[in-house]
């Protein structure tokens, strides 16, 4: 498979602050490429440079074998950007929104009409083409946001958090749409705070931290990086009694997180410390409801590699 996108030694500085630090990356044709990173990791800056919204301080980006700095119009014509923030006109109908943005890519006449209708049908808004977005639900607006980016049939679609703040039904619809677009031959770069989404749809993933890619590969390859660890999930009645520092003192324990009446401990795989952990919780007068030992997931991988949660 050839590379749709190739980034070499990409650097972006804002004054003394290095937002992207000598990053190199390749996205292959037909991939759904997950781009993971906490806030401020450098994801958006990288995406802005790929979309020609920002100039790099150093390094090169090639799209379909052409340097985007030298062929900005070609690059822009072959990329569709679904921004994290809704970028639609509230005072224009759904049809007018899609038609206007598609027109910016040179589509006119019958072709423009066909592609507009096609994009609206694709995101399930075909019957709402005359409606104004101000009357749409959050999910419908997100879908329109996607339709505006795909009507010109780009080779590469960049989706920046396309499912933020929407209901599960719309979220499923969007995830299915991403898969369908991929089946139709589009290469997709997908960023999300929802690890399970990335795990579900991405064929390859890069983890970004402090402007650098610290790990890259399929989800299996990433999980394999931390085969020496295990996750212990313990259900409790109340979080108040738990002393995190005491748990961290137990041999083998790497990280401790408490969320929704669940103590999530990442520990070295070879250390048998489950008894000690339970005894500590009993000493803390915690009422234990369940105990489960899991193989590491992407969330654990991210936490282990970056030392912080994706939502931090």
């Amino acid at each position: 498979m050839s590379n749709v996108l190739e980034i070499r030694n990409l650097t972006k500085k804002f004054g003394d602050f290095i937002a992207v630090d000598n990053m190199s990356l390749a996205v292959r044709e037909g991939e759904i490429f997950g781009f993971l990173g906490a806030n401020g990791a450098g994801k958006s800056t990288t995406i802005n440079m790929i979309s020609s919204l920002l100039r790099s301080t150093k390094g090169e980006i090639d799209l379909l074998g052409k340097n985007i700095a030298k062929n900005a119009k070609f690059a822009k014509s072959n990329i569709g950007v679904v921004p994290q923030d809704l970028a639609i006109y509230e005072d224009m109908t759904a049809y007018e929104n899609v038609s206007f943005f598609a027109g910016l890519y040179g589509l006119r006449g019958e072709q423009l009409k066909e592609r507009t209708v096609e994009a609206l049908e694709f995101v399930g808004l075909g019957d709402k083409h005359k409606a104004y977005p101000k009357n749409f639900s959050g999910g419908m607006k997100r879908r329109l946001n996607i339709a505006c980016a795909i009507a010109h049939r780009p080779k590469l679609i960049i989706m920046d958090e396309p499912t933020v703040g929407i209901d599960p039904q719309s979220r499923n619809y969007i995830l299915n749409s991403v898969r369908k677009l991929n089946d139709m031959g589009c290469t997709i770069i997908y960023t999300s705070h929802y690890m399970e989404e990335v795990e579900e749809i991405c064929t390859r993933i890069a983890i970004v931290d402090h402007g650098k890619i610290i790990a890259e590969g399929t989800k299996e390859q990433l999980k394999a990086i931390i085969t020496d660890t295990k996750d212990i999930w313990i259900g409790i009645k109340s979080e108040d009694e738990i002393k995190v520092e005491s748990l961290k003192q137990i041999p083998g324990v790497a990280t401790v997180r408490i969320e929704d009446q669940m103590v999530m401990i990442n520990s070295k795989a070879e250390v048998n410390n489950l008894n000690q952990i339970i005894q500590q919780l009993i000493r803390d007068r915690a009422e234990i409801r369940s105990v489960e030992e899991q193989a590491p997931n992407l969330e654990t991988v991210f936490l282990t590699l970056t030392g912080r949660n994706l939502r931090d």
């Binding site: 900005a72 014509s77 950007v81 921004p83 006109y89």
Partner: peptide
């Protein structure tokens, strides 16, 4: 403010 500006600039429009 509406963020449509970034979308416009990510199209072939300069």
């Amino acid at each position: 403010e509406n963020r449509t500006f970034l979308r416009l600039l990510s199209s072939p429009v300069s």
